[in-house]
Amino acid sequence: MAEESAWHRAFDVVTVFVLSIIAVLTAWCGFEASKWGGEMSIAFSQASSARIQAAAADGEARDARQYDLTIYTQWVLAETDGREELVAFIEERFTPEFKTAFDAWEAGGRSERGPMVMTEYVPPGTREAEELTALADAKFDEALVNNQRGDDYSLLTVLFALVLFLTAMSQRDVARSIRLSLLALAVVVGLAGFIVLLTFPVKI
């Protein structure tokens, strides 16, 4: 009888210990899932903001390109008509970016189809649009990674809930072998979950 009582006390101590540890780990996983969910939302917001800015910069570049194309068209017509004064007048109104490309085009013997196809031609907003688009893509990828991290912690929460269930079932009034098997299974699953948890990144 005394031996049976000692066994129950030892079993209860182990059970309480397992329940306490798993409860802490479950709470930790819930906390981390929430933190990574927040990081995901921030990254998505940053990606959206960067895309809006990239669209604005691309619009600026498109408008600048349209202006340069219009001026260049008038220049071509004036040069074709041999109106040198008008040609000079139009050239004075070239934008700095177009002037750089135009000079490179002239220096190259006008072998290219026009100044606007020259690598030197970079309308304002072009590089900004490229950089912001790259930033938006990077932030979007970061958001997806953070989302997966949150999901991983959520899955561990479910795993630890299973451990709590098995531990609770081991307290039922059934055969000792069944109780020991349930508790042992709970410990094994809990240890496996803890080992996996150690591989996850932490966000405080």
Rank of each mutant, 00 (worst) to 15 (best):
D103I: 05
V24D: 02
L19A: 05
G193Y: 01
Q171S: 05
S5K: 12
L159E: 11
R172W: 15
R110G: 09
M40Q: 10
M40V: 02
S41V: 10
A54S: 15
Q66Y: 10
S48E: 12
M118W: 04
S177C: 08
I22W: 02
G193S: 09
G193D: 02
A134S: 03
K99E: 14
I178P: 00
L19W: 01
G108K: 01
A78F: 10
E4V: 09
A143H: 00
A184L: 14
A33Q: 06
F200C: 03
E106S: 08
S181L: 10
I52T: 15
C29F: 05
S49R: 11
D141G: 02
L185G: 11
T26E: 06
F98S: 06
S41R: 13
L185W: 02
P124Q: 11
R51F: 01
W7M: 08
K99N: 15
L132T: 04
T95W: 14
A88Y: 07
A138R: 03
T80F: 14
A136W: 02
D63K: 15
P124N: 11
A138Y: 00
D173K: 05
A33L: 02
L191K: 07
D137F: 01
L69Y: 12
A2I: 14
F102Y: 15
I42M: 06
A33C: 06
G190P: 02
V16C: 04
G108Q: 04
P96F: 08
A43F: 01
L69M: 13
L166A: 08
A10Y: 09
A175H: 12
V189W: 05
A57N: 05
E120I: 00
A101V: 00
S170Y: 00
R93G: 10
M118I: 04
